[in-house]
Structures are given as C-alpha cells and as structure tokens.
Design a protein around this nucleic acid. Structure first.
Lengths: 228, 228
DNA sequence: AATTTTCGAATTGTTAACAGTAGTATTGTT
DNA sequence: AACAATACTACTGTTAACAATTCGAAAATT
C-alpha cells in the first residue's frame, strides 16, 4: 500500500522524505509560499515527525524551503532575483565543470554524456514536460559529475532541485518543439570532444543564461508572500 | 516592551551544536577520522540526541563530517585530493564574487572590506594562529557577501569551515611573518577599487591557489582511515 | 468604535524511551 | 589451538509524549 514500506533498498526515512517533498514541489503539489506542517506531512507518509524534521532541515539548507523558528517551514517563493541567482551560479559552476571535463578528457565520459543525451532525445518524444525537465537535469548532472570534483558536485546539487522545479513549470512553453534544446546539448558535447575549453565554456554559459532569460520571461512570478 | 525577555534569545540548539562541533574540529579537539557518538556529544552539551542528530546531519551535508548509515558519523579526513578540490572551487566562487563586486561597485562595500582588513591587521599582531585564520576567513566571507548573491554565499559557506579547519593547522607555518598575507589582501582591495575585473580575478585566483599549494606542502595528510 | 489584553488552539522545539543493526566478545565444536 | 556459530553490546534510526512559542480571536478597556 505505502511505497514506503517496501522500497528497493531500505534507504533512511529522511532521504525518502526529501525525495517526496522535492517531487511534490516539482510537480506543483506543493506550491511556492505554501506552509509545510511537520505533523501533517508525517501523518501523510505514515511516519513520525523526527525524520520529517531532519528532511526539512536539509531542504532548508539547500534553499528549497525556508524555515522560520517557531513559525514553520514554507516552500520557497520563486522571485525574479532568486531565479537569476540560480542561473548565474549554475553558469559559473558548470563552466568550471566543462573546463575540467576537457582538461581531464576521458573517452568513457563522453560515452556517458552521449548516452544521457540519447535518453533525453528519447524522452522528448514522450512530450511529458516534467520528464523532459528531469532528463535535461540529468544531462547537466552527468556533466558536473564528469568533472570528478566532489565539492563542485555538492555545491551544484542544491541548484539541481531548484532548476528542476523551475523547468517543470515552463519547459513546454520554452521549447515549443524541443529541437533547439536537443541541438544545444549535441553541440556542447561535440565542442567538448573537439577540446576547445573556451568555446565550450561560452556555449554552456550562453545556454544556461538563455534558458534563464526564457524562464524569467515565461514564469508567473509569485511575489512577496514571504512571511517574515 | 521586551524588557522581561532575555537580552540574548538562545539560538536553536541545533545551531549551537554545529558551532561547537566546528570549533572542536578547528582547534583539533576532534581529530580527522574520529568518531562522533551522538549520545556522548548530547551528554557533553547537556541536551538530548535530537538536536545533535540534526546538527550532524547538517554538517554531513556541508562535508565536515561523514555519515555512514547505522555505523556513525566521523570527522572528515583531510586528504590531498579534497584540499585541492576545496581550493579550486573556492577560487572559482570567489572569482565570481569579485567580478560581481566590481560590476555592482558600492562605496560602502569597500569601507566594509577595509574595516575587515584592518581587523585582520590588528589580529596579526596578536599572533594567535587560530584567530588569524578566523580573520582571514572573515575577510573572504565579507568579500563573498559583498557580491550580494544569496546562492553564491550558500555554496561558498560550507567551504568556509573546511578552510578554517585547514588554515588553523598550518597558517603559522605558511606565513612566518604575516606581511605577505596582509599585502595580498590590501592589493586585492585596491585592484577592486580600480575596477579592473580581470586583474582582480586573477589576483584572487592566484592568492587562493598559492595558499592551497602552501597548505598541501605543509600539511600532514592523514591518509585513508576512512571507514567504508 | 477602536485599541489593548487575555486566552486558547495550533504548531514547532525538545526530550526520553523503544527498535533495529553492525561490530565484538564468547562459546562450542573439531 | 583454530574456526564457526551464537549471544552480547553499543550505537544509530525511529517513535511518541512533553514543553515552549506564535498567532488569531474573543473579551475587556478606553
């Protein structure tokens, strides 16, 4: 009955809660600004408040929710400034990643990137916005992982969730046909293979900045229902 | 009418625990690889295990300790690869910060930087390694804050603790007289004031990379007592 | 009527007890 | 004495009850 009771691997409850909350936010079940009541969530997942608290604490640190002492945790609002911050930081981190990937070039890395690219192309056919956003994200995650830089990944990882949330809201509007999305990724991989770090860096920066601008253009910014 | 309220509201226990643990690691009271037992720590701080768990969970995410399910949390080892990762990522983030500071130049920002610089100079006279490392760190924190980029700060913040830990071990060896340390910071601020982003960027990159190399040269790397 | 005070419901922060698991010592067998 | 199976111990993961705080609404005051 509950997905909880029999997962493939008995992951810690905390991580399961994190996944659930992230997913709930991504597909809009939890809306920006909405309050998350620990007891409610715990009851819904049929566990106690302990793991829920820990999960929310982690998510607070990742910036996906906002915790105010003795008042509660709220789903983070998506305002203009924050979206742009996430984009600029992503661009910086992924540029760094790309440069490292090129510097320590490995054939197997490229294979993995191409395989993720293929998955993306495959998913595009299904035309499910959330899935596509997820695959897009997976590709970028693979890229960051390929840099083989633990701390870089840790710094980037929190942004992943934010981008996933943002993207799932708007990706179908941004790419009416997803050809350009696919093209951009293919171009990037080829540039990496050619080994010109500066070109690759400017490509990924351009890609992320453009997607950020599109995002800002299309998103319904929910302003200032941030309880202080 | 806050008269009957205590002048200093006690911070959440979780944050107090975090501070305690960070400080304990920084001054060597908790050694790399050492196990942290929740109940022990809780008793030492005279609180229950709940907040301790949350604190350790946070510190795990920040990479200062390592948590292995059902086995425990261990103080992170300092190995060559990790130190270098922290340095390269710091360089990337702080370069980004410096560029933003210059781009959105404000007079008050420079005042704050100079004031932190003065504090650093003052502290150097006291010749306490941990204090100096702390002040050095404060300066860089101020720099990152000056970029007025919430997510950048969140990404950088975890590195702060690592650097503090590393630095406190070695700073007195690295700068026999601290003149060069002071000089580097003064130069950086002046370059920022002059407004040339590329020079400032290369300066801070050089500064961080050099300090990283010094660190690697001087540190006793504790290898592979990482329980898996 | 408008403002302040008081009270109570809701929710978070904290605690202590319980359950499950990995590692270690002990016992039994050969 | 050497090895395997077992029981034990110490710790983490989880739970449910308790304490502290906030916020809103009713009551009291001006």
């Amino acid at each position: 009955m509950e997905i909880w009771k029999k997962p493939k691997r008995p992951q810690s409850l905390r991580n399961q809660v994190i996944e659930q909350v992230v997913y709930a936010i991504a597909n809009g079940h939890l809306k920006p600004g909405e309050r998350i009541v620990e007891a409610e969530l715990a009851q819904a997942l049929d566990i106690s408040r302990g793991p829920v608290r820990e999960a929310l604490s982690t998510l607070t640190q990742e910036g996906l929710v906002n915790n105010i002492p003795y008042r509660g945790t709220f789903v983070m609002d998506l305002n203009h400034k924050e979206i742009w911050e996430v984009c600029t930081l992503r661009a910086t981190l992924e540029e760094f990643a790309v440069r490292r990937v090129i510097e320590f070039f490995k054939e197997e890395t490229m294979e993995r990137l191409w395989s993720h690219y293929d998955e993306l192309v495959e998913t595009v056919r299904s035309c499910n916005a959330l899935n596509i956003a997820e695959m897009d994200m997976n590709f970028h995650e693979q890229l960051v992982r390929a840099a083989e830089h633990e701390y870089l990944y840790r710094a980037w990882s929190p942004l992943k969730y934010r981008v996933l949330v943002y993207s799932s809201f708007t990706i179908e509007k941004r790419y009416k046909n997803y050809d350009s999305l696919i093209q951009l990724h293919a171009d990037l991989i080829r540039t990496i293979e050619e080994g010109d770090a500066n070109i690759a860096a400017s490509e990924i920066k351009k890609h992320i900045h453009e997607s950020g601008e599109e995002l800002l253009r299309h998103i319904k910014v929910v302003e200032e229902n941030n309880p202080i």
